[in-house]
């Protein structure tokens, strides 16, 4: 050890000496000292990142690892005894009908979000640029749903969908469509659609803001040039706005897909996964298993499966996006 230390000191000294030599040789140009400074940069960068890294490591990386670890055990979450059982939880999960129902509902939510939230967001964003008076007012109105707390929205819509006092059934009654009236959240066929509609209502404004920001960022001269060439508004949209919005659309799609896959709140407030598991999502089922049924191990295996599904889908999208970028 002592010899090693000595050697270090020797190297250190030599380094310092060489530095002195360079400095004395070229006092005006600092070419060589860059190296030690770079080390310092790394230190500084690391120092700035350390808090974020620490939190990320603890609450994301470590948590994912622990979730996988717990998923290998049969564990109630409150007792001290954990029984290792390998991948048994995953085998059970694959045979669990409710899990497949919840996965199906999640995919339904993904599809509905992509097909309604994004187009709706885009349409609202384009409307905001139309030369109509009072657009600033509408901008606030359109954005309102996203500002409301999810629980408040959930309770609001519980009343809207109410079979006896709800406004939807009253409107249907006024229109003479009595046969369409029903308790929207209480029927297994309609409950999931009622909740999905609410989710879309809540999140479309979020994409509106994203698209609006992206449209503002498109240089005005492109439109001017197109105008000189005699392009119609439709052509301007198809050949300028839409292509330049692609990166935003991809980002929105990722956000929407991931958000839909791990969605929880409105379902929890409005139906709690019911009736008869017809609106169960992976996240609500995980919650039920973990905290109601005291199956921490099984709940963890649901969590980890959710994570894997979201990860695989994200990697796919990013892969195709990279490919697209490479081609263009």
């Amino acid at each position: 050890m002592a010899g090693h230390a000595k050697q270090l000191t020797y190297e250190d000294n030599r380094h310092q000496e060489s530095e002195k030599v360079y400095q004395s040789l070229e006092p005006g140009r600092k070419v060589k000292p860059k190296k030690p400074k770079r080390n310092g940069d790394v230190m500084v960068i690391f120092a700035f990142m350390a808090p974020a890294l620490l939190i990320y490591g603890l609450y994301v990386v470590y948590s994912i690892g622990m979730t996988f670890y717990y998923s290998l055990y049969e564990w109630s979450g409150i007792s001290n005894t954990m029984v290792f059982q390998g991948l048994q939880n995953y085998v059970t999960l694959m045979q669990d009908g409710i899990f497949w129902t919840s996965l199906q509902n999640n995919l339904l939510l993904v599809a509905a979000s992509l097909l309604t939230q994004l187009p709706l967001g885009l349409i609202m964003a384009l409307l905001l640029f139309s030369p109509v008076k009072g657009m600033r007012f509408f901008r606030s109105i359109y954005f309102m749903p996203f500002l409301m707390s999810t629980v408040a929205i959930g309770i609001l819509f519980i009343y809207i969908y109410d079979g006896n006092f709800g406004i939807i059934n009253q409107i249907l009654g006024q229109l003479g469509l009595e046969s369409w009236q029903r308790g929207w959240l209480g029927n297994e066929e309609t409950a999931i659609w009622a909740v999905i509609a609410t989710v879309c209502w809540q999140f479309a404004p979020f994409y509106m803001i994203l698209f609006r920001a992206a449209i503002v960022g498109i240089p005005e001269d492109l439109y001017e040039a197109a105008e000189i060439d005699g392009a119609s508004p439709r052509k301007k949209f198809l050949h300028i706005t839409l292509p330049l919005l692609i990166p935003t659309i991809v980002t929105s799609a990722i956000l929407s897909i991931i958000g839909s896959l791990k969605y929880f709140d409105l379902i929890f407030v409005m139906t709690d996964g019911g009736p008869n598991n017809s609106t169960e999502l992976m996240a609500t089922y995980m919650y039920e298993q973990t905290f109601t049924n005291f199956n921490m191990g099984y709940g963890s295996s649901i969590s980890f499966t959710m994570f894997l599904i979201a990860l695989i889908i994200t990697v796919f999208i990013l892969f195709f996006d990279q490919k697209r970028k490479g081609e263009s």
Binding site: I155, Y159, Y161, D162, G163, N164, R182, G183, L185, G274
Partner: peptide, 20 residues
């Protein structure tokens, strides 16, 4: 009542029918 499987006791949906 219609859709009773979706009605929530905590938000008073069943009691409202009684009171009304």
């Amino acid at each position: 009542p219609d859709g009773f499987n979706g009605m929530n006791f905590d938000t008073g949906q069943s009691r409202q029918l009684i009171y009304a």
